[in-house]
Design a protein around this nucleic acid. Structure first.
Lengths: 219, 219
DNA sequence: TGGTTAAATATTGTATACTTTTTTTGCGCA
DNA sequence: TGCGCAAAAAAAGTATACAATATTTAACCA
């Protein structure tokens, strides 16, 4: 793809995810152009894409601001994800191929094997295989629109900032849930796959809240 | 909003909906600029937005094409709508205000009163009030993300091209369903509202298919 | 004749200058 | 002092020229 637009998109996006560009902050095209070392034209293009991805908001008179969110947004996203991923898993149960099932098992086993004696796992190994596992199911659901919705939802800055590392017990449960989802998909059982996936996401929501509560307590 | 971008967006979009710009057709920025009587810059901005709205697709090397779709896409969209609108109605049951209920009843009654002695209704009256009815429920669901998803889904060109005018029997059922949804919302009954709305959308899907079958038969 | 490459052409990407719109600043008057 | 209006400044919108890239065409060689 085009150089300058990608450069601008990546730079601004990472600035938002890292917090360098604070929520609510007004983004001026010229400032961003300087920051990204490109002209205003690719910055404008990048801002349009960031707007579609909900990283920035266009308010009043075409002024662009970093999207801001509340705790409610996090619950909102989890709720929507639970429904959409459940739905995707259900559809996947009816459409998944043998090849996709093999790939899914591969990612699942990579996570299982990554668990150490202490019951924990390297964060990168988990994140990468977990991500691949879920995306394969989106693909298997055979709805480009559904996949696009989930993609946008999962890549929300508020989600990317709240990556939580699982404790031993929660990790074990998550693995067990993946195993169950695999089982449901193998049997082509739509309702089971849907329920197992929904449960999986809602569990993740609980883990997030526990972690958030601990952080507050530690302060 | 800005003049030229809106002009370009509206012109290109209506061209796609009307079929003047055929599915799969390669859209060249200069041609569009001439068509819309603006320069390439606002055309580019408009194309970014149309891309986010799935009206056009960016392929291989940044070339933009009118999105093409199949019969499967229509079913896909109906299925997603059934789920999302059902979910929205369920959430709305828990959040809707008295004021919103009053507005909903207003739109509902406008449709009821619009039905003539032959059991039919003026298409514009129905479309406008039906649209307002559904959007009010999206708002009442209190999730900007969910509303945005539904908005994009409903405004798909393939949906806008397949507006079906209801026959007397289907119109009567649709009105009855709206009445039921209102009842469920008034009672704050999440499960009921969800089920009633899901049913309403799936009925619309059947109506669409019947109409499509008739058109084929008439050829 | 068929395929490969290079030149020409078409199309998109980028920068910049200029225009329009919006916001801010500051001055005058009540 | 506080309000309102006007002028100035800032920011976004638009057009255009030029650069880079991709696609097509044509020619040459095997």
């Amino acid at each position: 793809m085009s150089k300058a637009i990608d450069k601008a998109y990546a730079r601004i996006r990472s600035g938002i995810v890292s917090g360098e560009l604070a929520p609510g902050q007004h983004l001026k095209e010229e400032e961003l152009a300087e920051l990204c070392d490109v002209s205003r034209t690719p910055v404008r293009d990048a801002l349009r894409q960031l707007e579609a991805d909900y990283f920035v908001e266009r308010r009043d008179n075409q002024r662009v601001f970093v999207a801001s969110w509340t705790e409610d947004d996090i619950d909102d996203i989890f709720e929507l994800r639970a429904m959409l991923e459940g739905f995707a898993a259900g559809r996947a149960a009816e459409h998944i191929t043998q090849g996709q099932l093999i790939q899914l098992r591969h990612h699942h086993e990579a996570i299982v094997k990554g668990v150490g004696a202490n019951g924990l796992i390297d964060s990168d190994v988990f994140l990468e295989n977990n991500r691949a596992f879920h995306r394969l199911i989106w693909d298997a659901a055979r709805s480009a629109r559904l996949a696009a919705m989930l993609q946008r939802l999962v890549e929300q800055p508020v989600v990317m900032r709240t990556l939580v590392t699982y404790g031993a017990k929660d990790l074990a449960r998550s693995i067990s849930q993946h195993d169950e989802i695999l089982d449901a998909l193998s049997h082509g059982d739509r309702a089971w796959a849907n329920a197992a996936m929904t449960s999986h996401i809602l569990h993740a929501q609980r883990v997030y809240h526990s972690a958030a509560a601990e952080q507050v307590a530690a302060q």
